[in-house]
């Protein structure tokens, strides 16, 4: 009898509603801040890294969207801009750098080699897509992509953060900020 009683649908009380609303509000505010201030860690290998430089420079100007290249350690980054072929030896270093970042953290995969292996998809020594080793939020195709596409990716990521559609939340690898 007890169990049945517990399973019965009941309307939430006023306290619960206030609690839920407050939680929602705090989450919205946090997501607003997170989406507007994405400090990238530039994990640039190969030619895509050359395109990453104009992303922060005059013409494209990443700083407009709050993407500030603080040039600092993974501890202060929110976003890892991962580009180029990731060899199997590099994969561990990449994952190491990724694990150093405090959550919430986002991943943007840059370039064909990074998304799927590209030219080297059949190689014995390259990872065919970094989504095999870490959850990727946004992919930037191209070989190499234009700097404007980086800006587009950041805008898409902003949208995803606002709608709570980040990979980390979806696949439940590490749960909600408990890693």
């Amino acid at each position: 009898m007890e169990e049945i009683k517990n399973n019965e649908f009941s309307y939430p009380g006023l306290g619960e509603i206030i609690f839920m609303k407050t939680e929602k509000f705090i989450e919205d505010v946090l997501n607003w801040g997170r989406s507007r201030s994405l400090w990238p860690l530039t994990f640039g290998t190969k030619c895509c890294a050359m395109e990453m430089i104009p992303f922060g420079a005059t013409k494209v100007d990443a700083d407009r969207t709050g993407t500030l290249f603080v040039g600092d350690s993974p501890r202060q980054a929110d976003l890892i801009l991962c580009s180029g072929t990731i060899s199997k030896k590099m994969a561990r270093r990449l994952l190491n750098a990724y694990e150093q970042m405090p959550s919430p953290k986002y991943v943007i995969a840059v370039g064909a080699c990074n998304i799927s292996g590209g030219l080297f998809h059949d190689s014995y020594n390259s990872i065919a897509g970094i989504d095999r080793i870490m959850p990727v939020d946004v992919y930037i195709p191209g070989c190499p992509p234009r700097p404007e596409m980086f800006l587009d990716a950041v805008l898409i990521l902003r949208k995803l953060i606002k709608e709570n559609k980040i990979k980390r939340y979806e696949n439940g690898v590490l749960g909600r900020d408990k890693s």
Binding site: K88, A91, R92, D122, S123, Y124, N125, I127, A128, V173
Partner: peptide, 24 residues
Amino acid sequence: GRPLRKDFEVTDEVRNWTGLDLKF
């Protein structure tokens, strides 16, 4: 394996090897 030997074959096992203990 030793990849530049002629009898080495790039199999799926080799391709998917990451050497990482990943759980997802």
